[in-house]
Nucleic acid binder design. Structure first.
Length: 631
RNA sequence: CGGGGCGUGGCGCAGCUUGGUAGCGCGGGUGCUUUGGGAGCACUAGGUCGCAGGUUCGAAUCCUGUCGCCCCGACCA
């Protein structure tokens, strides 16, 4: 391809809309253009990158025996109603674009394909003899993201490889999951990315085990925690660690007591309490008052106890709450602090004026949630307005993190303004807390697998995620097969995603310098750019043309910069768009000498034009092989 | 949705406080010179100042509304 024909439009200044390096460089290099928020045109250069990534993905997926397919993006609502996800994905904060067709049928634009594939599996799969099977596709996904961000990093329309496997039993699912783990490692390796596999929360997709693949980069949206020995890595949402040892309370209290009352006026925070009375935060139990909302309209107040020096992990909390109540009330929609503002905006029949915020203890009585009498008289005898009746549970769901539950004696609020209790115990308060893990693991915490190892924090861009779904969808959608004994049972499922367009940008985020992109050769739009330093010199043009023809004939992806620009312009553009190898045909052309420059390291080599092809083939071959073999 | 910021030729910005000729750099076109790290000179095209109201003799500038975009939070490949 000739640069003069490439529609190469590069920008000298950083566009105002871009914040992070990869986004700026993709815009400046003429790789993408924004059409609307979170919606991008992939220009010819980027399309070549995406095709190269897709090819690698295909090769590795095919090598595991997976079958490529292509599923519809327009999906009927009833499929999603059968899985129980239509409401959650379309209402409120739901991310599915949806529409009504001319017949009044509801359709959604596919954000993911569990429903479609499971319906297909129910149709096609009948016998254990057909199993296992793994179907994948590479296509555009649509998600009405709450906040699109950073160009291709979080778009409302993006390219994804998604795969879905079906199995006769859980053991077989585990094998395919492991095979996908291997394939993913090879894919990212071959794309030239430094990626780490981390334990993950399975989120809205559901299911049991799941693992994310993170490209480490400052601009990453996720926080990951890893141990230096490489044996543990997890998303912070999921990460576990050893809490520090709590300091015992100095004045040993009576065993099983409720503690001594302590006057603490105005001391509503952990810091104030500790500095006023010399407590250590680990001697305190802090109590959070929250409100969970469910798909069926039910509200459930939560009373969460944590040791004073620990932070709540809201993903762990959401999982714990879902596990207890989603069976009865459907999906957990949100958990928010229970405040006067929330009561007002949700029109809850609650009066929080008696709740002593800042002085809560784990034994706060359910009666504090009694309905507000004034509210009752307001609405007595009046037909309720258009809003449906609020369903509110009038007792707390009480959950305690293990660090709090294990304290023998602690300081906590007295459930009365301006007072705390010192030396309280769970038995004394009449509570028997379950020991849950609700706390956020943090950088510096000691690891479970080895107390000598500490967790380190890094930021990451999630480029892949693999799940063992189990039978969640096959049960909901009645995708069943006949097993060896002739008995019908639901299929076991796994699903496996790679954000292809996100991966392209993540590669830029990881491979760039002050002058532009430094693509790994495996996914670069072109491997080589031949630059004619001065197009007025016929001898340079002639040599460059013959090199271009030779390299192209050798099967390399070659760009010929034949523009009549000055050399400096062409060098700047070549650096910006990040072609891994540059061949400069300039002053040495008369002697058939050219210069070979590696983009990433700037190494230069003067060599005979006749040696260029062999040198490039060796260098590129070495890089590709290196990326393939290391595993 | 809550909080913060921005909309002025294709791109990056100034002008707005204190109302009165719409400007700068880059980019585009033509010509000449230059030709190994974003060249120089000359000429030239291109803007209803996001949109709609209002105030005013007069609005890019002041007021109101609205749309769009970006950043911080809940979501995720």
């Amino acid at each position: 391809m000739r640069v003069s024909r490439l529609l190469l439009v590069t920008l000298r200044d950083d566009p105002a809309e871009a914040e992070i390096p990869s986004h700026k460089l993709l815009l400046r290099g003429g790789y993408i253009r924004r059409i609307s928020s979170g919606i991008y045109a992939y220009l010819p250069l980027l399309w070549r990158v995406l095709q190269k990534i897709s090819t690698i993905v295909r090769q590795e997926m095919d090598a595991t025996g997976a079958l490529e397919t292509l599923l519809p993006q327009l999906q009927p609502a009833d499929l999603w109603e059968r899985s129980g996800r239509w409401a959650g994905y379309t209402a409120g904060e739901g991310i599915m674009f949806h529409l009504t067709d001319r017949q009044g049928r509801e359709l959604g634009l596919g954000p993911t394909h569990e429903e479609v594939i499971t319906a297909l599996a129910a149709d096609l799969l009948r016998s254990y003899r057909q199993l296992p099977v793994n179907l994948y596709q590479i296509q555009t996904k649509f998600r009405d993201e709450i906040r699109p961000r950073f160009g291709l990093m979080r778009g409302r329309e993006f390219i994804m490889k998604d795969a879905y496997s079906f199995h006769a039993d859980e053991d077989c699912l585990r094998q395919t999951y492991a095979a996908m783990d291997g394939a993913y490692r090879r894919i990212f390796q071959r794309c030239g990315l430094r990626a780490v596999a981390v334990e993950a929360d399975s989120g809205a997709i559901g299911g049991s085990a799941s693992q994310e693949f993170m490209v480490t980069a400052e601009a990453g949206e996720d926080l990951i925690l890893t141990s230096a020995d490489g044996r543990y890595a997890a998303n912070q949402e999921r990460a576990v660690s050893r809490p520090s040892v709590a300091l015992p309370l100095a004045a040993a209290p009576r065993a099983g007591g409720v503690g001594d009352r302590l006057s603490t006026p105005g001391q509503t925070t952990i810091e104030q309490l500790c500095s006023a009375h010399g407590f250590d935060p680990s001697q305190l139990v802090k109590v959070l008052l929250l409100l969970a909302r469910f798909a069926d309209g039910q509200f459930q107040p939560l009373l969460i106890s944590l040791r004073g020096d620990q932070q709540l992990n809201d993903v762990k909390l959401a999982n714990a709450v879902s596990a207890r109540l989603s069976g009865a009330h459907g999906a957990l929609l949100s958990i928010d602090p229970l405040t006067a503002d929330l009561v007002r905006s949700e029109r809850l029949p609650l009066d929080l004026s008696e709740i002593p915020f800042g002085y809560l203890g784990p034994d706060l009585a359910d009666q504090t949630l009694a309905p507000d009498p004034s509210h009752r008289s307001d609405t007595a005898g009046v037909a309720p307005p258009t809003t449906p009746a609020v369903q509110l549970t009038r007792s707390f769901l009480r959950l305690s993190d293990a660090t709090a539950a294990e304290l023998e004696a602690f300081v906590c609020g007295a459930n009365a303004a301006d007072h705390h209790r010192v030396g309280a115990s769970w038995a004394g308060l009449g509570l028997q807390p379950e020991s849950l893990d609700l706390r956020a693991a943090q950088s510096g915490d000691r690891c479970l697998h080895d107390p000598d190892q500490c967790l380190q924090a890094a930021r990451g861009i999630e480029v892949g995620h693999i799940f063992q779904l189990g039978r969640k969808y096959s049960e909901a959608m009645e995708a069943r097969f006949t097993n060896e004994s002739g008995v019908d049972e639901p299929l076991w499922m796994g699903c496996y995603g790679i954000g292809v367009s996100r991966l392209a940008q993540a590669a830029v985020e990881q491979h760039h310098d002050a002058d532009g992109i430094c693509w790994p050769v495996a996914i670069a739009p072109f491997a080589v750019i031949v630059v004619i330093a001065n197009t007025q010199e016929a001898i340079q043009v002639e040599l460059a043309e013959s090199l271009y023809a030779e390299l192209t004939a050798a099967g390399l992806d070659v760009l010929l910069d034949d523009r009549t620009e000055r050399a400096g312009v062409k060098f700047k553009d070549a650096d910006l768009i990040g072609i891994p190898w540059r061949v400069v045909v300039g002053r040495g052309a008369a002697a058939a000498q050219v210069e070979l420059v590696r983009r990433a390291g700037r190494e230069k080599l003067e060599l005979a034009a006749s040696d260029v092809r062999a040198t490039l083939e060796a260098e590129i071959g070495r890089e590709i092989a290196g990326a393939t073999l290391v595993a």
